[in-house]
Amino acid sequence: MTTAVQFVLDALTAGSFYALFALGIALIFGIMQLVNFAHGELIMVGAYVVYLTYRWPWPAMIAATVAAVVLLALLMERIAFRPVRGANPATLLITSFAVSFLLQNLAQMAFTTLPKSADALPALSRSITAGRITISWLSVVTIVTTAVLLVALALFLRRTRLGVQMRAAAEDFGMAQLCGVRGNRVVAAAFAIGGVLAAAGSVLLVSQTGGISITMGLAPVLFGFTAAAVGGLGSLPGAVAGGYLLGFGTTLLQYALPYQLAGYRDAFLFLGVFALMSLRPGGLLRTAGAEVRV
């Protein structure tokens, strides 16, 4: 029983991380058909900002991180992605790959490959014990923060004018423009929101692992994109569902894999992704979309 509860908590925590990352990726994909690999670098940069500011009072640290990451996201959009907007998916993918590579190596020039550590938000490492279950405050905060951000995003998309414009642009960008929607503004807003999600993710990630390195963005973006793909790329609810599904999946693998195979977790996971992409290219949760019949 306690293992079950522990399992659920671990899965929810992991799922929250993946949902955050997945959402950032799905949001951009929905609007621009771009899988933004550089999203991982947003998380990495956020982590380095945390490293630089973790001794500040925590509201200031969080504000600094959000500001820096959002700024980077907007710059990324303006300089690298706007010129190639509308290009074919392969070009977009390579562009995002190039930006990711660029940022990683810029970070290497600035910070070297040596990982850093930061004791961010130390208060969160304490745990609560209830009976035989131990929950760390960090888990609670992660789950709650993610839930809050999700609700906020949903409200934004449904209740605000910019949110409706964003949904319209995601469905039919050209038609939205014909209605007078300012395309550049909507895309920038999407990147900014992605930046906020990435910043939240990076703060929580650093709090959890304490470590910061220039390659730390890779795992989040891989898992984030996997979760988004599972849910059907471009679907926001799908991304969230995919994130939690992935959280449960990876936690299950972690609990269930015998010790010798533990290292292969990623191999199993990505073989699973491969199988999924092959069998259900539209994602697990989408019904088979219009397949072109010739």
Binding site: V35, L222, F225, T226, A229, G263, Y264, R265, D266, A267, F270, L271, V273, F274, M277, S278
Partner: peptide, 12 residues
């Protein structure tokens, strides 16, 4: 994306 998954799995 599927081929990317192959790369990751192989690396693992």
């Amino acid at each position: 994306l599927a081929t990317f998954a192959i790369l990751i799995a192989a690396n693992s």
